[in-house]
Design a protein around this nucleic acid. Sequence first.
RNA 1: GCUCCCAUCGUCUAGUGGUCCAGGACACCGGCCUCUCACGUCGGUAACAGGGGUUCGAACCCCCUUGGGAGCGCCA
Length: 479
Amino acid sequence: MGTRKIEETKEMTVRTRFAPSPTGYLHIGGVRTALYSWLHARQHGGVFILRIEDTDLERSTAEATAAILEGMQWLGLDWDEGPFYQMQRMDRYREVLAGMLEAGTAYHCYCSREELEVMREEQRARGDKPRYDGRCRHRHEPVPGISPVIRFRSPDAGETVVEDLIHGTVRFQNRELDDLVIARSDGTPTYNFCVVVDDWDMGITQVIRGDDHLNNTPRQIQILRALGAVPPQYAHVPMILGPDRQKLSKRHGAVSVLEYREDGYLPEALLNFLVRLGWAYGDQEVFTREEMVAAFRIGDVHKAASAFNPEKLLWLNAQHIQRLDDSVLAIRLQPYLEAAGVPEERIAAAGIPLPAVAAVLRDRAKTLSDMAAGARFFYDAPESPQGKDREKFLSGQEPLLRMAMAGLAALSGWEAPAIHAVLQQLAETHGGGKLGKIAQPLRVAVAGCAVSPPLDATLALLGREETLARLDRAAGWTT
RNA sequence: GCUCCCAUCGUCUAGUGGUCCAGGACACCGGCCUCUCACGUCGGUAACAGGGGUUCGAACCCCCUUGGGAGCGCCA
């Protein structure tokens, strides 16, 4: 019985977090670190925490916070605790700050910004790295009229080692690290300090974040040690570049993830794309959410930055569309159809089941928006086609349309194979044996454009009455 | 400038000293399939950044160079 207790304390519950700052929208890079954190927690039966780092009052907005939460929900990256807001934890930070001042691991610094700027300039001129020289370290008397900042007293000898799950051992000489500001002169704590206290308080076991934070890590470890806390494990994931391998920016469409939703991407496809950006599992390209959870290992993530590849995302989206059940696909598609101007009531009124339409469209759609565009004509009888299509395919084709109507009207059933036989027959008599000769005019007549699912399947779905009505109407467009 | 990180086809990657004149995927090019557009399918072009070591043997280990990135704030 005793051994059991040891195991439990040894194998701590995994606790990871995603900690975005609400100064902008949730973008691709953020989503990937969120995904990795989530995956790591889920595969270990751990806890995933959402924390909003909103201490930058100037730039944080409520809209950004809302967009982040909505994005996470849309992606299905569900969190077990939070969202926590740093602004609501100020009392706690002040308490820790006071303790550090008391213990002497932090001290007041009265240097003015101007003074510091001069100091840095001199250092730069000498070719040194600009860093605080610790001139207030031993000051005991306050300077009247100046509200001091609080600095962390960092060790000036030895080294701090980061055992990174992705990068391996990374060593930093302590003399390279200066005494950083952990509280501003107005008393508010700074980022590096809040992160440390939060990760500590929240019992985070693995900090998974962008590798732009790797340089901050030794200082965070030092603060944690000064606090008597055991540092968590770290995993610094590389950043994502634009398709041109330049830093990801708005120009690349690297905007809010919610735009991917608008553009008709499936969340599982986006997640699949992102998980493979910097990580691989043999030759497997397509992963379900469950497969990702099972196969992903944070330690297998690549060290190098990777470029965003929109074509591959599109391909993966198509792959995931292929794999959905008709009924599920229809449910996913419905909002996009609505956005394309086909409300739910009209779908019901038309009597053409959406799952069936989705089934015939799935092979040729890369996004749900594509699919909605392709599905529209089933529910909305097309207007007279414009320009080329009308001239090229309908001009002078009234006899053909009439023949088709006669043939289809005479059919006893209304199944695709029977319809196909009629079309085949028509091709023999009016198309020189070539289905292509007659299919295009009929397609344009019925769908309003030169692209649609196979004609027999399309007509079967439209129904006899609607097909004949559309052919009759199109006969008026043949001049 | 200083510190840290990184480096296989255009892109995402497999590869952890021999089985690699380097495999898969997207994209691209060609063939097949075909009533349109697609899907599918078959095939093709295409990479170990450069230089030194270590070793019987290096894409894999070490060093240097080059190139990219990050950090050096009372931003996060």
